[in-house]
Amino acid sequence: MRAVVMTSYGSPPVLQPADVPSPPERAGWVTVRLAASALNWHDVLVRQGRYRSPLPHVPGADGAGVRVDTNEAVVVLPSLFWGGGDAAPGTGWEILGDHHPGTYAELVSVPAECAVPRPRGLSLAEAAALPLVGVTTFRALFSRGRLRSGESLLVLGASGGVATTAVSLATATGARVIVTSGARHKIDAARDLGATDGVDHSAADWVEAARALTPGGAGFDLVLDSVGRWEESVRCLAPGGRCVVLGANAAQRASLPIRPFYFGQYELIGTTMGSLRDMAGLLRFLDDHKVAPPVIDRTFPLAEAALAHERLEAGAAFGKIVLTHD
């Protein structure tokens, strides 16, 4: 089968089209013939060698297509071996494309439970873009963050898959959403999705500017921090507010003043990806609410995965970048 393979770690050009063996049959697993796959920042980290993926390797976590055995239209849930607990994944958990061949290929093999019925009303590109950011954001907002209708939410960032999905899900549940970005056109695009407004997070006073957009300037009930700006995120909170952390692109370490934290009655909550139960919750949410489909920035042919990665790393995209497998 055709696939995109990396034989070394490095910059986007290490991603090259190649012929590789089709996945073998094994008990409890199914093969999905993929029509599209979506990029995630996680794929960049895999390409760079952050997860020590075996070489040669086919990356990719997200995909949409049909089960070969049943011809059922499915999306791929990339959360493998989560385990039986809801609080956190088990020790065997991993993301598809880390150590098992991923979705930058014509075929992918996944545990049967991870081939999930494709939601109604989504194009193939939109369906491929849904699983990783969808289940990650649903868990962050609702399973972990406990977001409720009428609450205020601050989303750090405005243009990535998590940010755009967070705006869509949160506004559908009746929350008031503010975003941050260094580019006004991205804030305007987030407003088109349902965000109330946004602030420039490159400004020195952006925390104060964000708080000023909350009722009475009291701060946010929930902050979604996918970049690692903890100190500023906590300062954005209203008393008793929650900060959900799910990324570290901007910083690998954080320092917090302790006394203001506990006097503020704040919560700092870590999360990543999501379980089968989170995915089921997301699909029920999509059935029960009017939610905008995943935002697609651009599509590339599978063979141009390296170019797609260059666009992802340049930070120019608004929404998801998708590979088509025609």
Results as ranks from 00 to 15, higher is better:
T164F: 01
E126P: 02
A127Y: 06
H99T: 12
R148F: 14
D98C: 13
E113Q: 12
T136Y: 10
G92D: 15
G92M: 11
H100R: 10
W93K: 01
V155A: 06
A127K: 01
A105W: 02
E126I: 04
L132Y: 00
V167I: 06
H99Y: 10
H100W: 10
S152F: 03
L124T: 06
F142T: 01
G121E: 11
G150H: 06
L124K: 04
S149F: 05
P89W: 07
A140M: 14
G161L: 14
G121Q: 06
R120K: 13
A127R: 02
D98M: 10
F142K: 03
L154I: 05
F142C: 09
P101C: 03
S143W: 08
I95H: 09
G134M: 09
S123G: 15
T103Q: 06
R148Y: 14
P131D: 00
R118L: 08
R139G: 08
P117S: 02
L124C: 09
E94R: 07
A128K: 06
L132Q: 07
S149Q: 08
E151W: 07
G157V: 00
V116G: 15
R148G: 10
V167Q: 02
L130W: 01
P101D: 14
E106Q: 10
L141A: 08
L130D: 03
A129Y: 04
V108H: 10
G145A: 06
A163Y: 05
A112Q: 10
T165Y: 09
A163F: 07
E94N: 12
P101V: 07
L156A: 03
T136C: 15
H100F: 08
V135N: 14
R139V: 07
P131G: 02
R118V: 02
V167Y: 01
P101L: 13
H100Q: 12
H99R: 08
R118N: 12
V167R: 02
R148H: 11
A127S: 04
L130T: 00
T136L: 15
G145I: 04
A158S: 12
P131E: 00
G150I: 08
P89E: 08
T165V: 11
G121N: 14
L156S: 03
P117K: 06
F142N: 09
G160D: 10
L156Y: 09
S123E: 05
F138Y: 13
W93M: 13
P111R: 11
V162Q: 15
T137H: 08
A140F: 06
P131W: 00
V135R: 07
P101E: 12
R139Q: 04
V135T: 11
A158N: 03
V108W: 02
G161P: 06
G92Q: 07
S143L: 10
G150Y: 02
F138T: 09
E94F: 05
